[in-house]
Simulated assay, not measured.
Amino acid sequence: MRTSRKFWRWRRNPLKRGTDRAEAWAVLISGLLLVVGAPLAGVATGMSVAASGPRLPADWYSVSAVLTQKAPAPAPADEVSRSDQVRATVEWRTADGSRRRGLAWVMPNTPAGRHTIVWLDGTDRIRDSPHRGLQMRALAFGTLAATGTAALATAGFVLVHVRLARRRESQWDREWREVGPKWRPHRT
């Protein structure tokens, strides 16, 4: 019958030392930090950054607008534009039912008739989305927090493993100094 190697760190064994138990706990804790702690740290940080963003003015609101014509191709790098969007003409209905037109940021080459969300102020003028920069910042800080937590968990495990290996070696040296002379053949 073959023995399983899956949970060898947790099996009972009369030869298992305290350093082996400590290393088993270090593996478990660092694994939990990597699998559960890092994602939680990233999500919590991202949500915190998003929640701490600037508040919208009270008269701003979002509406669904329709592109009236196909959006242009991406602008050359030397022109003033956003890196991933172009301006295109959109049409929307105001609260009183009248139609309005204006320029909004959309993805390049978006076909006419496609719906997009635009932000309007109290005078029904198009404003830049207040969430655009905030979402990217929240994603960046969340990623950094998750990566940092994973790095700390890994570095902590490596530090514990190295210290336990040194302790194990010193214990083996000490025990060998006691037992070694008994095993040597006596010379007469």
Rank of each mutant, 00 (worst) to 15 (best):
136 M>E: 14
33 L>Y: 01
174 R>Y: 11
11 R>D: 07
88 A>V: 14
145 A>W: 02
161 H>W: 14
96 D>Y: 08
162 V>K: 03
51 A>Y: 05
7 F>P: 04
55 R>Q: 10
38 A>N: 00
77 A>P: 07
50 A>Y: 14
108 P>D: 09
121 D>K: 10
162 V>D: 06
153 A>M: 09
51 A>L: 06
25 W>F: 10
100 R>W: 03
60 W>F: 15
32 L>K: 02
177 R>M: 08
97 G>R: 02
54 P>A: 15
81 S>W: 00
166 R>L: 06
161 H>S: 13
79 E>H: 08
92 W>Y: 02
135 Q>M: 14
174 R>L: 06
43 V>W: 15
128 D>M: 13
170 S>Y: 10
131 H>Y: 12
42 G>F: 00
56 L>E: 10
158 V>R: 15
72 P>T: 05
96 D>Q: 13
177 R>V: 01
32 L>F: 11
20 D>N: 05
12 R>M: 09
177 R>W: 04
27 V>F: 15
30 S>G: 10
151 A>G: 12
100 R>G: 00
33 L>S: 10
70 K>I: 15
86 V>C: 09
152 L>E: 00
31 G>D: 01
184 R>F: 05
44 A>F: 12
3 T>L: 13
20 D>T: 10
61 Y>T: 01
166 R>W: 07
16 K>I: 06
113 G>K: 10
36 V>Q: 07
4 S>V: 12
23 E>S: 07
40 L>N: 09
98 S>R: 11
1 M>N: 05
144 L>W: 05
31 G>M: 11
136 M>V: 11
52 S>G: 15
116 T>Y: 04
163 R>T: 05
84 D>Q: 08
126 I>K: 09
38 A>V: 08
86 V>E: 01
102 G>C: 02
154 T>S: 02
128 D>R: 11
175 E>D: 15
30 S>F: 08
17 R>W: 07
115 H>F: 04
19 T>W: 02
76 P>H: 13
154 T>N: 01
110 T>R: 04
92 W>C: 01
12 R>N: 12
67 L>M: 08
23 E>L: 14
83 S>R: 14
61 Y>H: 15
149 T>P: 07
59 D>N: 10
165 A>S: 05
140 A>W: 07
105 W>C: 02
91 E>H: 08
16 K>F: 07
64 S>V: 15
132 R>K: 09
98 S>G: 06
39 P>Y: 03
74 P>Q: 07
36 V>S: 09
170 S>C: 07
185 P>I: 02
52 S>A: 15
82 R>I: 02
168 R>C: 03
103 L>I: 04
49 V>M: 06
156 G>N: 00
161 H>P: 00
14 P>Y: 08
21 R>P: 02
107 M>G: 10
126 I>F: 08
86 V>D: 00
148 G>S: 15
63 V>W: 00
156 G>R: 01
119 W>T: 05
6 K>T: 09
52 S>V: 06
137 R>C: 02
2 R>M: 08
182 K>S: 12
100 R>I: 01
48 S>P: 05
19 T>N: 12
72 P>M: 06
187 R>M: 07
89 T>A: 11
37 G>R: 04
7 F>C: 08
136 M>I: 11
188 T>H: 12
113 G>T: 13
118 V>L: 04
39 P>A: 10
77 A>N: 03
139 L>H: 11
123 T>S: 14
6 K>N: 09
25 W>A: 13
12 R>H: 12
69 Q>F: 05
86 V>H: 00
109 N>I: 05
120 L>C: 11
131 H>D: 14
76 P>G: 11
42 G>S: 04
